[in-house]
Amino acid sequence: MITSPIWLPATLFAGMLQAWRTAVQRRVGHTLSVNAAGLVRYLYGLPFAVGLMVLYQYGIAPAAFPGLGPDFLLFCLAGGLAQIIATNLLLMAFGHRNFVVGTAYSKTEAVQGALLSMLLLGEKLSLLTWLGIGSGVTGVMILSTGGKRMAPMDFIRALGQPAALYGIASGFFFALTAIGVRRATMAVATPDHIRAALITLAATVALQTILQGGYIIWRERDQVRAIFSSWRISGQVGLLSAVGSACWFTGFASAPVALVRIVGQVEMAFTMAFGYFYLGERIARSEIIGLMLVTAGVVMALTGAL
């Protein structure tokens, strides 16, 4: 059920910021381990997440701090942990030979999210929205191949490969992340979706910082100095991550998970635009087809939700 029109601009802005953050985070990845590069998103994003919550709560829309349901922190923890697991699984897919297939299968997240939200949250979607999800997921899978020609049978034959399995598992946990966040926002006693989203964001990022930070101190203590010495770039990652997540969380608080995710796939279009206009990368014909499928999917999903 769509409870506020704020979800659409928030989701579109989230897709743009995520593409931007990914581009910046690539620079951090050259000097940090995989887990340390993941931690900077939370560690440097936490001050911004808390700042956004305080600014909105006491500056932009002053109000008494809302009550939190008894399962609020549980769902924040579940969503945050699922995101960490999903990210690691995606990186494991990258580590195998056919990482393109792994990336493509991770993009089934929208379909998995639609099915899980229907089973766990009771969300119902129209037939046209389901067709839009299918079109969008197909388009994103094509885009994730990076212009390489891969027949449908190639994806089917690759199902048994570790890269594909890690990719599917990654999409599953990313879908669980969205569901955990949506349930957490529902546990905040306020009709203001932005307020609920920002409170959930601050709590989730704090828990992720503790979880990932604890692991770094336990297993990769040599990375601690490198994390803090990279503050110039990591600070940018944290800012983009916090603002982007605030937009994602606002979308999840005010619209069905599957609808937010299918519209959020415009991130791929922003990523390609960045590569084309700023990096001078060429766009393959298959990528144009993928973009058309994603666009058609978004239009069908939105039309079916009206």
Rank of each mutant, 00 (worst) to 15 (best):
T3M: 07
P5H: 07
W7T: 03
L8I: 02
L12K: 11
L12I: 15
L17M: 10
A19R: 07
R26V: 09
R27T: 12
G29Y: 01
G29R: 02
G29I: 02
H30E: 07
L32Y: 06
V40D: 03
R41E: 04
Y44K: 07
L46W: 14
A49L: 11
G51Q: 09
L52T: 08
V54N: 04
Q57W: 10
Q57G: 01
G59E: 00
G59Y: 07
P62K: 10
P62D: 10
G67W: 08
G69Y: 05
L73N: 00
G79H: 08
L81W: 11
L81V: 14
I85W: 05
I85F: 05
T87D: 10
T87L: 12
N88Y: 11
L89K: 12
L89Y: 08
L90A: 12
G95D: 02
H96I: 00
H96Y: 06
N98M: 10
V100I: 15
A104R: 11
S106A: 15
S106E: 06
K107D: 07
K107V: 13
T108C: 06
E109F: 03
S117K: 02
M118E: 01
L119N: 01
L127E: 01
G136T: 10
G139K: 04
V140G: 10
L143N: 04
T145V: 08
G146S: 07
R149K: 13
A151R: 13
R157F: 13
Q161A: 14
G167M: 04
I168P: 07
F172C: 04
T177I: 08
A178H: 13
I179F: 04
G180W: 02
V181K: 04
T190Y: 06
I194A: 13
I194E: 07
L201R: 03
T204N: 10
V205D: 08
V205R: 12
I210V: 15
Q212T: 13
Q212Y: 07
I216H: 12
I217Y: 11
E220K: 05
A226N: 09
I227H: 05
F228T: 06
I233D: 01
V237S: 01
S245I: 12
F249W: 06
G251I: 12
A255R: 09
E267L: 10
L279C: 04
R282W: 03
A284R: 14
R285W: 14
E287D: 00
L293R: 08
T295L: 13
A296C: 09
G297L: 09
A301G: 07
L302Q: 14
L306R: 11
